[in-house]
Simulated scan of single mutants.
Amino acid sequence: MHGEFKVPGGKLVVVDLDVESAGSGDVLCDVRVAGDFFLEPDEAILAIDRALTGAPADAPAEQLAARVEAALPPGTVMFGFSAEAVGIAVRRAVAHATDWTDYDWQLIHDAPQSPALHMALDEVLTAEVAAGRRPPTLRMWEWGAPAVVIGSFQSLRNEVDSRALEEHGMTVVRRISGGGAMFIEPGNTITYSLSVPDALVRGLSFADSYAYLDDWVLGALDGMGVKAWYQPLNDIATESGKIAGAAQKRLAGAHGAVLHHVTMAYDIDADKMLDVLRIGREKLSDKGTKSAKKRVDPLRRQTGLPRDAVMRRMIESFRDRYGLSEGSVTPEEMARARELAADKFGSEEWTARVP
C-alpha cells in the first residue's frame, strides 16, 4: 500500500507498507517512510519505521503520531513535516487514497452566471463527479449580480439585513455547504470550486482536507508575493488579515465526491458589507478583532495585480502542479442546473429554510 501527504506549506511525506493478520487483528508491517523533508539524526527515520511496524491497521492518525513521537531519539529535529503528517500518510495508504496527479483535471471558466445558478452548478457538477460521469473539476466563477451567500445552516434573518439588501440591489442565496455568509460584488470577488472524488481526501480528517485541497492556491499566492497560510478551520489569512473563506459538502454516489469552494476578497466595499451583513460581536471576538473591516484584507492591495491577472496566475499554478485541460458544462448538466436554480436555489422555501 502506498500513501502520500503533502504538508500544507511544507514537504511531502510518502509511506509504503503492508498489512498482515495478527492474533489481535490486522497490523502494519514492512513500513517505509520517505519524502523530501529534513530529519536529524539520520537514524530517526529507522526509528519511525520501527515505531509504526506492528501498529493496528485501523489506528487513527493521532495514535500513529504518538507512537512516532515516543520512538524518536533525543534531540530529533523534523523540518517540513511532523509525526502527525506521518500518521496521515499512513492512513491514506491503508485507505487506498489517490493523489492529485492520478486524475485528468478539467477547467470550467464560463461567462457570468446568476447567484442561484452558481449554487446549482456546484451541486450538479459535484454529483456528476460522484457518479463517475465527470472528471475532477476546477471551476472559476464569474458573478452576474451582487449577492449575499449564506451557509446551509445559517439563519436568514440573523445574518442579513433585508432592508439594506434591497437598498443595495442585492439578492440572497443559500448554498449546500455549511459555514458563514459571503458578501459578493462582481469584479471584487474571486470564487472557485473543486469537485473532487472522495478518494482524493481519504485518510484525511475533515479539518485536514480543507488545507490539503487549498495548498495549490497558497503556492499561487506565494508566487504573487502574498505569504498566506490556512487558519483552521476554513480561513486563508495573511499578516494583513483574512483574504478567503472555504466551505465543503460531501455528496454520495457510485464513487462519492467532495465539493470544496472558496471565496476570496479581491476588493471590498467594507461599509456596504457591514450594512448588509449582521456580523455579531461574538464572531468578531473569536477572530481576535473588533472590526470586520480589519478581518478582510483585499487581494488587490496585496498583489498589485488586476483581478483577471490574479485568476490567470491561480489557474496556471494549478496547471503546473497537476495538469489542467479546458472543459465546459455539458448541455445536460446546464439543463439540470437551470432547473435546480429555479426550483430550489431561487425558491423562498430553500432560502428561508432556517428563517
Rank of each mutant, 00 (worst) to 15 (best):
H96L: 14
E128D: 14
W105A: 04
L121Q: 06
L125K: 06
L117V: 03
Y103Q: 00
A120Y: 03
T137V: 08
V129R: 01
E123N: 09
V129D: 01
A111T: 14
A131C: 09
T98K: 15
L121A: 03
A120C: 12
T137R: 01
L125P: 04
A95D: 11
Q106G: 08
D104L: 12
A127S: 14
R133V: 13
G132L: 12
W105H: 12
T126K: 01
L121K: 06
T126F: 06
H118A: 05
E123W: 11
L138E: 00
E128F: 09
A97P: 05
L125N: 08
E123D: 13
A127D: 09
A93Y: 01
T137I: 07
A116T: 05
E123G: 05
W100K: 09
T137F: 05
D102L: 12
D99K: 06
T101A: 14
V129S: 03
Q106K: 13
D122G: 13
T98M: 08
M140S: 07
A97V: 11
I108M: 12
P112L: 11
R139Y: 05
E128Y: 07
G132E: 10
Q113K: 14
Q106S: 13
V94T: 12
R139L: 03
L107D: 01
L138S: 02
V129Y: 02
R134A: 03
E128A: 14
M119K: 10
A95F: 04
E123Y: 11
T101Q: 13
A131F: 08
W105S: 05
T98R: 13
P115L: 10
V94Y: 03
A131N: 07
G132M: 14
D122T: 02
I108F: 10
D104K: 12
L138F: 07
R139N: 03
P136W: 01
H109S: 10
W100C: 08
M140H: 09
A95N: 09
R134W: 05
H118Q: 13
Y103T: 00
D122K: 03
A111D: 14
D102G: 14
A131K: 10
A111G: 08
Y103D: 00
L125G: 01
D110F: 12
L121G: 04
H96S: 15
M119R: 12
I108H: 04
L121C: 06
A116D: 00
I108S: 07
W105L: 08
H96G: 15
S114I: 09
Y103G: 00
D99C: 10
G132T: 14
D99G: 05
L121V: 08
V124I: 11
L121P: 01
A131M: 12
P115M: 10
A97S: 15
A97C: 14
I108Y: 05
V94L: 08
A95G: 04
R133I: 11
P112G: 04
H118M: 06
A116N: 00
A120E: 02
P135C: 11
D99E: 15
H109K: 06
P112D: 06
T98A: 15
E123F: 10
H118W: 10
P115V: 09
A93T: 06
L117P: 00
L125D: 04
P135L: 08
A130S: 11
A116S: 05
H118F: 00
Q106L: 13
P135H: 09
